[in-house]
Design a protein around this nucleic acid. Sequence first.
DNA 1: CATGAATGAGGTTTCATTCAT
DNA 2: GATGAATGAAACCTCATTCAT
Lengths: 209, 209, 209, 209
Amino acid sequence: MSKNKETVLKIQKAAMKEFLEKGFMKASLRKICHDAGVTTGALYFFFKDKDDLFCSLVREPVEKIYKIMTEHYALETDISEEDVLAVLKNPEGSLEDQKAMLSITKIMYENRDKIMLLFGKAQGSSMENIVDKFVEISAKQYEKMVEKMKLALPDIKISKHYARWVAKQQIEAVIYSMINIKDEKETELFGLNVAASLRGGWMATWKLQ
Amino acid sequence: MSKNKETVLKIQKAAMKEFLEKGFMKASLRKICHDAGVTTGALYFFFKDKDDLFCSLVREPVEKIYKIMTEHYALETDISEEDVLAVLKNPEGSLEDQKAMLSITKIMYENRDKIMLLFGKAQGSSMENIVDKFVEISAKQYEKMVEKMKLALPDIKISKHYARWVAKQQIEAVIYSMINIKDEKETELFGLNVAASLRGGWMATWKLQ
Amino acid sequence: MSKNKETVLKIQKAAMKEFLEKGFMKASLRKICHDAGVTTGALYFFFKDKDDLFCSLVREPVEKIYKIMTEHYALETDISEEDVLAVLKNPEGSLEDQKAMLSITKIMYENRDKIMLLFGKAQGSSMENIVDKFVEISAKQYEKMVEKMKLALPDIKISKHYARWVAKQQIEAVIYSMINIKDEKETELFGLNVAASLRGGWMATWKLQ
Amino acid sequence: MSKNKETVLKIQKAAMKEFLEKGFMKASLRKICHDAGVTTGALYFFFKDKDDLFCSLVREPVEKIYKIMTEHYALETDISEEDVLAVLKNPEGSLEDQKAMLSITKIMYENRDKIMLLFGKAQGSSMENIVDKFVEISAKQYEKMVEKMKLALPDIKISKHYARWVAKQQIEAVIYSMINIKDEKETELFGLNVAASLRGGWMATWKLQ
DNA sequence: CATGAATGAGGTTTCATTCAT
DNA sequence: GATGAATGAAACCTCATTCAT
């Protein structure tokens, strides 16, 4: 039990390195096995195939993020129109929303390498569209919000693709920060800039403020 | 003269299909040749290698976009601080800026499939980082603008990564639109929403308006 | 253990045949695999590449010969001038020298086919210049000898390329014998003729006897 | 007439470079054509195939050498036993023999690059065994000489392969010199050393002097 | 648990050569 | 004389995966 755990970890460590370096498709299982000091048979005892190995590396944060998103958005489902306006006029934004985004951001930063694998090196694996899936979930909420905003502000014409784009922006901002900024102070400052920017963008779209 | 052009076109047509379907790496030259009704030798008479074939499909719009960007940003280099504020307070934004973005958008829409190849299926080819290069060019301008804004508004703290993110947002908005929206009316509306949103985001960041 | 050895041997046997027939470059790995009743993958499990396969066939004698040469020439390093003359005036020649040459000859004859591969079919492989390397080692000794002979016989003018040519002659005589003569008696007689001839050539060059 | 001559020369010049660099087999006709600024079709108008192109580069010296050898050896055919001994006891050697060897050497040096092509880069072409053919011609003469020497010196045991080896040595000495020595003075000195050495070797074999 | 030999299909590329124009 | 498009076979090699042990 301790020994196979060890083997799995050795494989995963080597796999992480190789996948990060070459991306899913160009990564070589042979090299992973060699670097891990393990034979192919051992790898295939623990993992169904290449894709399964890749997924094992990112499964944990994916599931956590997924959980937070679904739970969070389940809460937000029943906001009334007045709430929507109130929430958006409040410079602090929705508390729940902030909490969710913070949780996700925290998870991402706790799993920095895994997330970079997930969002930058997954092409060819079954995870290659995972961002889209997250965006999808988030987008559904924004679509609901947009619908309600439209009721309150019927003169504003909004494309039906706008909500999804907003959702995508939000998620990609976190990823961008994670990939490009190492310094913590800088990360925080960047986060504030982005938050202000995104919020300002939303407000401007509705001609608020 | 007509005949060789024909062969090249047959190859490129088959290549376009295969690359769009499978992406650069998983695409098979054997299949492309077979689908084009041509031998591998013929392909290698016209194209240096797989990468050259891929590039031939996207070279034209890439060069056009590159030209517009470099020319446009050469113009914008010498804006004074007052200009910056003036430009940004003007709801219409910089005329040149708008024109450049419109030209690029137009080129992209005129080469929709090529651009989708370029921005979604290029991993493994020498074009895989082309977006980054475009963002880079644009980012340099935004960095200059940010520097000047800071002089006018010294109390606003701005991350040094902010400019690049803004540049990235702008370009990815066009790509997003192109990939996801087919209807022209909808595209236009989405464009207006995004323009308002991005402009509002920038203003909010500087606490203007 | 017995089985994998078998596969390797099957591959090597087929490879030996193909390389001897066509030479390194024209030999086809496909044909080797087919003749060995094995897939290409199997070949590449045991051998890094074509060159590695070729080398595996000749490595053993090469290393043996190399070992003898380096050991032998290490011994001979410290001959004095008098020794040199003494050795050369003695019709039997240097005992050590004879022993080394005999060992090498013996190894060559024990690995006749491998040596023929090595010296006649290696063009294109990493072994293509192996004769030159052997000659080089031997040549260094002859160069030292020539230097000492010159001290004893300052009137004889000797080209600085002469030593290497003598070394080359000696080694190529063995190869020549091996390639062209099958009969043992004949080989022995030829060996005596060559030995006398080479020795006589050396003496005549120095105007001795 | 002048123009096609030009084209042929351009092709041959490029071919010479490529063959010298890579050897017959690895040389690329494509590259030769490209370097010559000519199309494949043009090459195939003047030359039957790769081999024909290669041969065209070396044909001239080959034929000259062949002519000298056959003519020379036709003369030497009818030497009597006494002549043989006389010739060999005479330190100057056979005058005709010297003249032939000098002519051949001269031709070789006048066609240095062609000869290096012929003797070092011909593997895979129809010229790959040309040295053997020259050796063969020369060897026949030496065989006759050996037969006659045996009649005069019946106690000396000589292998039937000895004559060919002597022939080979003589030709390879010239090639060796040509390939390895550039300086003229050095070449001459080396030639004297080798001549003395070969003659001394032959004499020692017959226990003469 | 783990080995490691073996599969077999597939990858891209290079080549000498041909032939209609 | 010369073009240059096209052939088509073959080249070496890599890969994820399987399975008897």
